[in-house]
C-alpha cells in the first residue's frame, strides 16, 4: 500500500513538473487587450461573428482583422466599449432576430402518422419526414433549440419552435439546423410575419393545417406593399414595415399573418438531447 502511494505521489509530481515546463516554454503570453475584449463579449461562442468562437474573435479584433459590430450578440453599448478599447470607430449594424416561419403546432396541423425514433428534426426527415401531414412544417423536435447558445428558442407543449425575440441575439446559429428551412433572420424592426412556408396550393394546405396561408390575398390589399404573393404563399417584405401591424393581421382568416411577438416570457430549457421515442 505505502509503495503504491509513494509511486503515485512521485508520478503526480513529475507530471506537474512536465506541465509546468511546457507552459513556461511553449505557452503564449495572454494579451491583456484580448483578455479585456473577451470579458466584454458574451462568451457564448455562437460563431455569429464568423470566427471560431469568442476568443478567436477577440484576437481578430485586437489584430485589427474584425469590426466590433460583427458580433451579433453584443448590444450597441458594449460594441462601443470595445471600439473605444481598440480606438476605432463603430460602424452601423442592422440588428437581426430569428423567426420560425411556421405556425402549425399540434393543435392546428394535422398528424399523418406516429413517429418513433431519434428525437431530432434532421434525423426525423430521414424517416418519412416525421409525423405531420404538412411536409413543410415545423417538426417540433428541437434541433434549433438545442443549437441556440442563448436558449432563445422554445419548443412549445404543442411541438412548435418559437423564437423569443427578447432573448434572441440574431446570431443565426439555428438557421442551418432546420431541415425544413423555416428559420429566417429578419431585422428586429419587423412587425409582421407570415407564419407559413408551404408553397402548396391553398386548398391542399388547408386540409393539412388550420393555420396555413391559403393565399386569399386579403393581406396584400390591407398591407399596401408590405406583403406580396409568392405563388400561393404571402411573404412579408421586411424592408417595408407597415403599422399598425395588429390591424393588418386581423384580416387574415387563418391567423397565419401575425404581429411579431416581443414577449418577455421566461424561456424553458430546450428538449433533452436526441433519442427520445414518441409513443404509439
Amino acid at each position: 500500500m505505502t509503495g503504491a502511494i509513494f509511486v503515485l505521489t512521485v508520478m503526480g509530481l513529475l507530471l506537474g513538473l512536465v506541465i509546468g515546463i511546457t507552459v513556461k516554454f511553449f505557452g503564449t503570453e495572454p494579451d491583456p487587450k484580448v483578455e479585456k475584449i473577451e470579458a466584454l463579449l458574451p462568451n457564448a461562442n455562437c460563431g455569429g461573428c464568423g470566427f471560431a468562437g469568442c476568443s478567436d474573435f477577440a484576437r481578430a479584433l485586437a489584430g485589427g482583422k474584425a469590426e466590433p459590430n460583427q458580433c451579433p450578440s453584443t448590444n450597441t453599448e458594449t460594441a462601443a466599449q470595445i471600439a473605444a478599447l481598440l480606438g476605432v470607430a463603430l460602424g452601423v449594424r442592422q440588428p437581426k432576430v430569428a423567426v420560425v416561419l411556421c405556425g402549425g403546432d399540434n393543435t392546428k396541423a394535422a398528424k399523418a402518422a406516429l413517429y418513433n425514433g431519434v428525437n431530432d428534426c434532421r434525423a426525423a426527415t430521414l424517416v418519412a419526414g416525421g409525423a405531420k401531414a404538412c411536409l413543410r412544417g415545423c417538426l417540433g423536435l428541437g434541433a434549433c433549440a438545442r443549437a441556440c447558445p442563448f436558449k432563445a428558442i422554445e419548443i412549445t407543449g404543442a411541438s412548435l419552435a418559437v423564437v423569443h425575440a427578447d432573448v434572441c441575439t440574431g446570431c443565426g446559429k439555428c438557421v442551418a439546423t432546420c431541415p425544413r428551412k423555416l428559420i429566417r433572420l429578419v431585422p428586429t424592426s419587423a412587425t409582421l410575419h407570415v407564419l407559413c412556408s408551404s408553397p402548396e396550393k391553398g386548398a391542399a394546405k388547408r386540409k393539412k393545417c388550420s393555420a396555413a396561408c391559403i393565399g386569399c390575398q386579403k393581406c396584400v390589399k390591407a398591407a399596401a406593399g408590405a406583403v406580396s404573393m409568392e405563388g400561393a404563399l404571402a411573404r412579408v417584405n421586411y424592408d417595408h414595415q407597415p403599422s399598425p401591424p395588429g390591424a393588418i393581421a386581423e384580416v387574415c382568416p387563418t391567423h397565419c399573418l401575425q404581429p411579431a411577438l416581443l414577449d418577455v416570457t421566461p424561456v424553458p430549457t430546450p428538449a433533452a438531447s436526441a433519442s427520445e421515442v414518441a409513443h404509439a
Binding site: 398528424k111 399523418a112 402518422a113 406516429l114 413517429y115 418513433n116 425514433g117 431519434v118 434525423a123 430521414l126 424517416v127 418519412a128 419526414g129 416525421g130 409525423a131 404509439a280
Partner: peptide
Amino acid sequence: DPGKLIVSS
C-alpha cells in the same frame, strides 16, 4: 388506417 401507422427508421 393511416392515422395508426408508425413511421420509423
